[in-house]
Design a protein around this nucleic acid. Structure first.
Length: 216
DNA sequence: ACAGTGATTGGCT
DNA sequence: GCCAATCACTGTG
């Protein structure tokens, strides 16, 4: 296995869209209370911009106690609770209010532990591609909640960080699509090309066949 | 494969 | 009081 380098401030200080591209192929690492480390390669991201972006929690400059990390220094984690039972994990950019949602990852380390966290009533075994192929599935698999992973500095934290193992994602492998689950924000913003994922990667949450055809 | 739907509760207005 | 950056499950083709 290739040697991994932990990313620092110089790496994670980026504008939102650049951050969303840059994070593809990087490794998200999560250290549990028992010392075990879970790792997954990021394969799908989305941008939530500040200001005009109606889908963003920071739309029109909105600031609340809950979305404070969206305005914190680049590389700060923003975890929020949604739909009464799920969490989503984001990373702030240098642009105030603009963050990158991490939507899916390819499990690399600690797969059995992830499977335990993810185990659901359904009979049968959960496939590897079903562990982290969605923003809230990722949070469940890696035990990330608002209580234990919010407002953390990814460059300093002992329990959460990003690594680069040299795995490259070519620009031509990056599919650009529309964001998921934001129809209520209106057609204009729901239609913006702000979702990015690795072409043909089986761990992606949702494919966009049309965008994939146009890419090739 | 894809569409439709119920679950469930914190945070904001 | 409203509703959400989702998920798992069910039914249909």
């Amino acid at each position: 296995m290739a040697e991994s380098r932990r990313l620092g401030k110089a790496d994670l200080t980026l504008p939102c869209k650049e951050m969303a591209h840059y994070l593809l192929g990087k490794i998200l690492a999560r250290k549990l209370d028992n010392g075990a480390v879970l790792k997954g390669r990021i394969v799908e991201t989305e941008c939530y911009l500040g200001g005009e972006d109606k889908a963003s929690h920071s739309y029109n400059g909105r600031q609340t106690p809950g979305n404070e990390p969206m305005y914190m220094p680049s590389g700060t984690t923003y975890v929020y609770f949604t739909y009464g039972m799920y969490f989503c994990f984001n990373i702030s950019s240098i642009e105030p209010g603009a963050v990158v949602l991490i939507r899916a990852a390819e499990p690399l380390q600690g797969l059995e532990t992830m499977a335990k966290f993810r185990s659901v009533k359904k009979k049968g075994v959960l496939k590897e591609t079903e562990l982290c192929n969605g923003p809230s599935k990722l949070c469940i698999a890696m035990n990330m909640t608002k209580q234990n992973c919010n407002k953390m500095d990814l460059c300093e934290s002992e329990v959460l960080w990003i690594e680069d193992d040299g795995g490259k994602v070519e620009e031509k492998e990056i599919v650009i699509s529309t964001r998921i689950g934001i129809a209520s924000a209106g057609e204009e913003w729901a239609g913006k090309p702000l979702r990015f994922y690795v072409l043909s990667n089986p761990h992606v949450s949702k494919r966009d066949k049309k965008a994939e055809r146009e890419l090739s």
